[in-house]
Write a protein that binds this DNA or RNA. Sequence first.
DNA 1: GAACACGATGTGACCGTGCACATCGAATTG
DNA 2: CAATTCGATGTGCACGGTCACATCGTGTTC
Lengths: 337, 337
Amino acid sequence: MASDAQTGRAPSIRDVARLAGVSHQTVSRVLNNHPSIRVETKARVQQVMDDLQYRPNRAARVLVTSRTRTIGVLAAAATQYGPASSIQALEKAARAEGYFVNTTNLDGTDRASIERGLNHLLDQAVEGLVVIAPQVRVFETFHDMNISLPFVTLQSTGTTEHALSVDQISGARLATRHLIELGHRSIYHLAGPQDWIEAEARMHGFLTELSANDVPATAPILGDWTAEFGYYAGRELLRVRDFTAIFSSNDQMALGLIHAIRESGLDVPRDVSVVGFDDIPEAAHFWPPLTTVQQDFGELGRRAIALLLGNIDDQGASPATLVPDLIVRKSTARPAF
Amino acid sequence: MASDAQTGRAPSIRDVARLAGVSHQTVSRVLNNHPSIRVETKARVQQVMDDLQYRPNRAARVLVTSRTRTIGVLAAAATQYGPASSIQALEKAARAEGYFVNTTNLDGTDRASIERGLNHLLDQAVEGLVVIAPQVRVFETFHDMNISLPFVTLQSTGTTEHALSVDQISGARLATRHLIELGHRSIYHLAGPQDWIEAEARMHGFLTELSANDVPATAPILGDWTAEFGYYAGRELLRVRDFTAIFSSNDQMALGLIHAIRESGLDVPRDVSVVGFDDIPEAAHFWPPLTTVQQDFGELGRRAIALLLGNIDDQGASPATLVPDLIVRKSTARPAF
DNA sequence: GAACACGATGTGACCGTGCACATCGAATTG
DNA sequence: CAATTCGATGTGCACGGTCACATCGTGTTC
């Protein structure tokens, strides 16, 4: 009855202790590598751990320390390249810091779905939050549920302290300026959903750059990030055809746009120039290869973690601004006029 | 000193009990809605819970029940549409069943990375595993670490009981037959990495269909799922140009392929027909719109959970075979000969 | 050489739940 | 009407770690 280890439960710290002939506390010290332990004692304990394939029980640790070391990700478009890449990088970075990540995907973007997502995350007692979703609505909900938790939003204007400053505005200005410099004067903007902070920022950048160059502004078209939408928007737009260039808020919509343009017998870039945003890996292989604004999604994810853990562990992090690059390929040219 | 609730710790079951004037066990019963509780008692407890914004402590529960209700996902290409969609659906389905999901992304596909990923998952005591990665290598590692855990692989030939039977083979045959029926006799296959079971299955389907129709087989080209690879493979292939059609193992590589073909002055589908696999949302907007094999990634994810929870909760699930569809668009035509 | 510091280790309580068992009153049964 | 059953509730312990504190032997200090 001394070796009642076959109870089905995994070996515990006390099982290790017994076999190593030490107290459970000594085992705990080995686990947290406490300085004052004799090397041979440590070795002996470690040996027993290996033999037993011992793994510390996370739940027990969490219970006593009340630290879950888990950060939550609230995602709305985890299917798209950008968010997916950021999440991947973020998860990796968190893991390297000994943190766990729980990614929860919203069922929809309505209030109830957001609430459900947040609740799921709170049930796990996440220590911080990364929001990759319509931030505006999430933060409202967040506030109404009056929860206070360190959080970071992946892409933003940089107004809040919680926000990672990827300069979406300057990225959008870069794209717009490129079109203006080529000689375009009638430029449309296919925007993203306006409750995504980055969509709003890109639109803002677009309008700012237009007015800075005295180019007449056009009303942005509000899209949903999909190629499908880009396609139908393109077809609508072509009925009038009072433009020579379009700046799309992401690459997928640009693809749909090009599809519509070409289907109507026009050519890109001869008749219409198109600029995208994101530089997804496929963009270089669109036909024509897409001129677009490159974002480093991986870096974004890593910085999100750095910023968040900085908040959690209370040392202030420095979110230096990431400036996106314009990648000029073949989808833009001088207007035919 | 009776109201020592401001200790910083969240309210516990006993805080609720005290305020409701019942024992902690009664509160626990309310939580797990035990049948024999007076409705008014239940209401009173619930009221206190709301007031306190009480949330059950998951760690404590896990500790005592030794059930984590967490399933782990080991992912290698979470950045791509297919895997990402499956993960998203899977996470949602798991959540609906009261399970938590932890997605761990492999740093690489080497042995050490896989081991690291598995360890991370085991540290959380996941109750089951979904593998979206080079399965062959994962299972070897899995075996060598001699861990036994219910697991499911998302896409496979259907040989194992653990495997979800999406019939990748018949999907590939569908695509190949389509090309043959159009009159093609010189068909290449751009395959995926061979330690992905689905890549191997698609290749198998391709070869089977060729031989069933007495069409001479060609050596498959082993790719890495990326558009970039498709592009370079296409350039290589075009130096010889002894083919009229290519079946690509996924849509991204097909895109790169088309890019290379068109760049060399040839046309798709006039000179070369191309078929993809997956039907990512962008495929309909490629130029030309891509003929491809459609997979229901969401359904895949949902079934993975159903199968896994069936194993965990011990009721045998029935993994009826999902048969993919061929979506004919504009990238295929009769050979010009 | 007594007082003390310190390194190495052990002891017991505690974290927030669920489980097994006990209790107690009311309804049912013979 | 006593015995039994059952519904509604309470009591105490266990889960597997960490923390605060105690213990003990040894070297250092004055």
